[in-house]
Design a protein around this nucleic acid. Structure first.
Lengths: 202, 202, 202, 202
DNA sequence: TATGAATGAGCATTCATTCAT
DNA sequence: GATGAATGAATGCTCATTCAT
């Protein structure tokens, strides 16, 4: 029956598990805890609903697992690979997030976890503290550099990052359909929050 | 014959109806359209679930009625009664909203309506366009005055207000619990978005 | 409080009770046992839903009472007051029933009682046996006369009446909307069932 | 992988679907649209109530599907396979319908659809027009032959059939239990409606 | 006593979870 | 192991019946 070695089997299992988590991220992010049906996640992961339960005991466990992984793994580090000044990097990074749907999933997830009531406390804690803290630490060097060269506003850098992330998260999840009269704030709007004197009212 | 006069009955009925709407506002705002159960609304309004249906034909009708009322009645006008300059007014107003839970319900409702699936179109329309537009118009004189005296940043005032409201809404719904290390963005943070040169980096 | 004598009170009560029964006849006949709501009957009788229960312990009791009264009181006797031969009388009588809605109520009631499953056995028994029997006895003299003068078909008169009533009942309750191509059987159609040789194929 | 082949699954599914439709036919016919509970249909089809919804979106859809199938498939054509003259055929056919409960379901369904409130319009249309028209067309050759050889009464054949069907439907749904004194109208009674001179008063 | 407000049991429907195949 | 069929608990809604006023 089994032409695969024990090790291969374990690896295969891990791959599938990861595939489920990714499917769940997408579905939970887009539809929220209540709106996401196990059947949708199964379909997205291309396996049967029954199979989900070989990997996760319940919807709740899947959700918490997902949250844990997002809290641990989501990273802001690729911002450093972008070209230009700190200000340029942050703007490009912001714009790319606002453009690419899958980059928004973690933010949407945080949003849903905050708004839904039946979310296990552990999940809320993880998302709110741990992941935001991680993001802040990852962005800190960039911001400090930006403040030194006058690109960014002065003051407590961590507080500034926190503000920026909150606003970014807001933009993503509010997702207000654009209306002709009042264009919504976009990446440049966001940059006002962090911009130093040099950029004000430009 | 009748134990209560016609007039009393009508008044009583209207009172109760309003009580249901208020209970619904709270529950829908906190839990969203799908997370809110009719039984929760009934409990909040202190009557039986069955009774709700004497006032509203369905959960959906209750929701839409609520949305209509919010869209029509929620006002930003009391901001004008606050003391001080436009900047002071906006800051006090913002701070009071961030402090008082019931003031946040309309914003949370908008948030839920935007993120949840299966929200009746009429509700989405009303919340997204009508109510946001109303807020903008109500804040416009204040902002224009603030721009004239240099309190607020220059540029399209409506766009500025829209940005501000988006951010306010974000703060409310993100609702991140304060954590010792990194104080969350608060009213002053928000003011950065609208502040003119005079206030930058103060 | 009471300017009415004991006797007047009792009479008044009886009047109201009768009014309820008549309202119930109409509503049950038109909508059936399940389709008839107590509130509809109350409205038809022009009193409150609560009042019904001062006269009848339950919907079921009201229904059975109604059935009993219909079984006992519905009469075919006015057929004898009509002008003409037995054949003429029966045809006029039939036509009048087919034209006047309230005359059809007892027939519709029988129909509903036969078709609904949750009808108390007593009600079914009463309607099926007792009332049909009464009708037969009331029509018997007319039919016998009709047979003697050759208006009606020969054979067991009771059986003939039973057949006729079944068909009449059918016409009333089937109530098929007339369609241009195939006019429905009407009074003359019905008469074929009882007609003697004299009337065949006229 | 799959424990059953695709083909087997599809066949099985179709079988079960048909089984539900048959259960529904029985329950709807006997109890009517409102009297029939989904749980009853489920029990009759020997599955859980929840399962019904894997095959039909709602009670209404199940009902309409059933009606459609009845309107399309119920046939009078097997009457032609019976032995004897047109008169004999019609009498045997009638008697068999009056004896076999499942043959009566379509008639009962029509009856319920006509009498109940809140029956979807499509269902009424289908039953009243389409199916009755079909029956008429299917019986037309037999009746025309019967009229030619003098078995059946003269006149508009379609009208005659319509009358006959109405009466047959009546007999089925009235369903009066036989009582010793007055034998109920039966197949022979029905034949009086269509019988030509040859058969009168036999 | 009369009203109509309130309750709660019942039914349609959905979906997480289990299980026969 | 894998599938998707089956179950049953939960929830929206209706309406007979009761009860506060």
């Amino acid at each position: 029956m089994s032409p695969l070695s024990e090790e291969q089997l374990i690896k295969r299992r891990e791959t599938q598990r990861q595939r489920i988590v990714e499917a769940a991220l997408k579905v939970f992010a887009v539809r929220g805890l209540h709106g996401a049906k196990m059947s949708m996640i199964a379909e997205e992961a291309e396996l049967s609903a029954g199979q989900l339960y070989r990997f996760f005991e319940s919807k709740e466990e899947l959700f918490i697992t997902l949250i844990r992984q997002v809290a641990k793994e989501t990273t802001m580090e690729r911002i450093n690979d972008l070209p230009g000044s700190p200000f340029d990097k942050l703007r490009s990074f912001t714009a790319s997030i606002l453009k690419e749907e899958s980059a928004q999933y973690p933010f949407k997830l945080i949003q849903h976890a905050n708004n839904a009531e039946d979310v296990p406390d552990e999940a809320k804690q993880l998302l709110q503290h741990f992941s935001v803290k991680r993001y802040i630490e990852q962005l800190l060097p960039l911001f400090e550099e930006g403040q030194q060269i006058g690109d960014f506003a002065q003051g407590n850098a961590r507080k500034l990052i926190s503000a920026f992330l909150t606003m970014l998260s807001a933009l993503i999840t509010l997702n207000m359909p654009i209306d002709d009269d009042h264009q919504l704030p976009d990446a440049d709007m966001l940059m006002r929050i962090v911009a130093g004197p040099r950029f004000q009212d430009r």
